[in-house]
Nucleic acid binder design. Structure first.
Length: 633
DNA sequence: ATAGGGTTAG
């Protein structure tokens, strides 16, 4: 039988406090002591070693229990109060029982929470909500939904607390169908104008890739708060439409809704996805004006933003100014150097991270290995690959193997890449075969490439990029019949090649170019600029590399075709539209072609400009005739 | 008793 001693003091708060401290009115407690007064909320003191003297008889009320539970610091303390509630029959009180369930859930003691929940004779909306919510929060989706269904069947009046939890489960499990059913319930319960419920609906639809449905809900809302806007903004970025996120952000500001730090994180994230340096700076300015401190999440998001907008230095600046850094912060910075080709600097961060007491995780190693790969650091890459398991007990996964294949492949060690591939016990995914195929493309190994491509076409028959890769390989080998076969296969499956495009941001406006594009208002000047460049380049000994043209046409036509690649058009326009000596930044949706790479190197020397190109994988900084990628990409 | 936030290969 549990011994407990509690007291209730009918005193003025500071008298109670005084009495408590001076008279040692506490217990060497087997159970928590609930001390309270009429006007002061209760407080709990446990395990105080004071003489067992001067005890008053106790009288308990639910409030004391609830207050005591709030102050519990461990599940075992909760157990004690729970026992106390049983012996005093206080467990019959719905408020006390609900709080117990909630606190158990908070301490991740879901079994205890659930057991108690099942024993409860009566339940109100709070009971259902804390149980469904508690399970949702720790990711026990199945049970959360099971109890949610029970709740619906129980005929309780549906309120605005439990629904958002259920919707969150739908979001996290991509169950848009169930989410839609819950949406019906929302209407039936007349809760569609509740801000919590509708934000959860918007979030659910957006994360389940139904961003249009999310927008419909959002547009229909009679009033919207900051969170409504934030979930919608973040939803668009998640669905691959960061432009719309930024449009909405402007709208939100126009409507006078003041964003908070979380909103800014989603906006920063959109800028990162978009790679829009101009916007990025504006957002940074706004964050500074609002005096938002760079907490670890906002700071990390900004590192990533600047890195993906092309400025690894600005990223580093944020990094250096952050007080708190965690493993994600360090990984982001490592990855930032990696995608900019500064492999050595990326690797230097690793020991610094360890020194600051942060251990790497699997993503850190992906960033490290990829940095090695982009910089051609073969030995370093091998060492890290072995070290991750040996020194940090992190078993390499497919992504790590993929980085290694990529690294070895680029370095011409196709045999070693193949050996690693054969040794790997894990199932090979699209990314892995893609890296292998890339390696084959560089080294003209058509046989292995065919094998890799076949696997790719099996795994992702809808991905047009794989067909293009294979056809490139055949084209490079001059096997035009095979090129045609791949083309036929593509068209029979109704697939189109992802059109290559290059973007350039001038005065806050984005200009887009495609191959052979003549739609730009300054098209004439652009082509004249290209012609002038071409003359200068050819004097400098530049010969178009027609290996990168994949049509079976004669050499001269191939050269003409190369000259209208979207990168070249965008660079020519950049030269026209920006001041002498300024840096030109362009972004491309695919990887840079080899000829454009050579072209850009030479242009950077001839016009004395730094040209920064973001391609699908990484950044290239062209300056004085060379590229930061060291021609590895 | 309620919601929204950052790093990952090809």
């Amino acid at each position: 039988m549990l011994k407990f001693k509690c007291l209730r003091l009918s005193l003025h708060p500071h008298e109670a406090k005084n009495l408590y401290f001076t008279s040692s009115l506490a217990v060497a407690a087997a159970a928590p002591v609930v001390v309270g007064s009429i006007s002061q909320p209760q407080r709990i003191v446990s395990n105080l070693r004071v003489p067992e003297t001067h005890f008053f008889p106790i009288s308990l009320d639910p409030r004391s229990f609830v207050a005591a539970l709030v102050q519990c610091r461990s599940p075992s303390q909760v157990d004690k109060v729970h026992a106390l509630a049983i012996t005093t029959s206080m467990i019959e009180n719905l408020g006390v029982a609900n709080k117990l369930v909630y606190i158990y859930a908070e301490h991740r003691a879901l079994d205890d929470a659930h057991a108690l929940f099942c024993r409860m004779k009566e339940r109100d909306n709070v009971s259902w909500s804390v149980m469904v919510g508690g399970l949702a929060k720790i990711g026990d989706y199945e049970n959360s939904l099971r109890i949610f269904r029970e709740y619906i069947r129980s005929g309780s009046r549906i309120d605005n607390y439990t629904l958002p939890f259920a919707l969150r489960v739908c979001r996290d499990t991509m169950s848009v169908q169930l989410g839609t059913e819950i949406h019906q319930l929302v209407y039936k319960a007349g809760l569609h104008s509740d801000l919590f419920v509708s934000a959860a609906l918007v979030d659910m639809y957006a994360r389940c890739a139904h961003v249009d449905d999310a927008r419909k809900v959002f547009d229909k809302m009679s009033k919207r708060d900051m969170v409504s806007w934030t979930v919608m903004i973040s939803g668009y970025t998640e669905c691959g439409n960061p432009e719309e996120s930024l449009v909405l952000f402007d709208k939100m500001m126009e409507e006078g809704i003041v964003p908070d730090k979380v909103t800014m994180v989603t906006v920063v994230f959109a800028c990162a996805k978009l790679g829009a340096m101009h916007k990025a700076k504006m957002v940074h300015d706004y964050i500074s004006r609002r005096n938002f401190s760079f907490d670890v999440i906002l700071g990390t998001a900004m590192i990533d933003m600047y890195a993906k907008c092309g400025s690894v230095d600005a990223a580093r600046d944020i990094f250096d100014r952050m007080k708190e850094k965690n493993v994600i912060t360090w990984s982001s910075m490592i990855s930032a150097y990696g995608i900019h080709g500064h492999g050595r600097t990326a690797l230097e961060l690793f020991p610094q991270m360890l020194e600051s007491g942060i251990l790497p995780n699997r993503i850190t190693f992906v960033s490290i290995l990829s940095a090695c790969s982009h910089a051609g650091l073969v030995n370093e890459g091998r060492q890290f690959f072995h070290s991750m398991k040996r020194d940090y007990s992190i078993e390499p996964d497919v992504k790590h193997y993929t980085c290694m294949v990529d690294l070895l492949g680029r370095a011409g060690k196709l045999d070693e890449a193949l050996e690693l591939s054969n040794r790997m016990k894990l199932e090979k995914d699209e990314g892995f075969w893609g890296a292998l195929l890339g390696a084959c493309r560089i080294h003209g190994n058509v046989g292995l490439a065919e094998k890799a491509a076949t696997s790719l076409l099996e795994l992702g028959p809808q991905n047009s990029g794989y067909y293009v890769l294979l056809s490139n390989i055949y084209a490079n080998a001059g096997r035009w019949e095979d090129v045609a076969k791949v083309r036929d296969l593509m068209s029979s499956r109704r697939l189109k090649k992802t059109p290559g495009g290059t973007w350039i941001e001038i005065n806050n406006k984005t200009h887009q170019f495609r191959v052979g594009d003549k739609s730009h208002p300054q098209s004439k000047e652009i082509y004249e600029m290209l012609k002038a460049l071409r003359e200068k380049l050819e004097l400098a000994g530049y010969v178009p590399d027609t290996n990168f043209v994949l049509h079976d046409v004669d050499e001269e036509l191939k050269a003409e075709f190369l000259y209208t690649h979207s990168e070249k058009l965008a660079i020519a326009f950049g030269l026209i539209a920006t001041a002498d000596g300024t840096t030109i930044r362009i972004a491309k949706n695919l990887r840079v072609c080899g000829d454009c790479h050579t072209f850009t190197k030479l242009v950077s020397a001839i016009v004395q400009r730094e040209i920064i190109v973001r391609d699908a994988n990484r950044f290239h900084h062209f300056k004085e005739g060379s590229c930061s990628c060291g021609d590895y990409w």
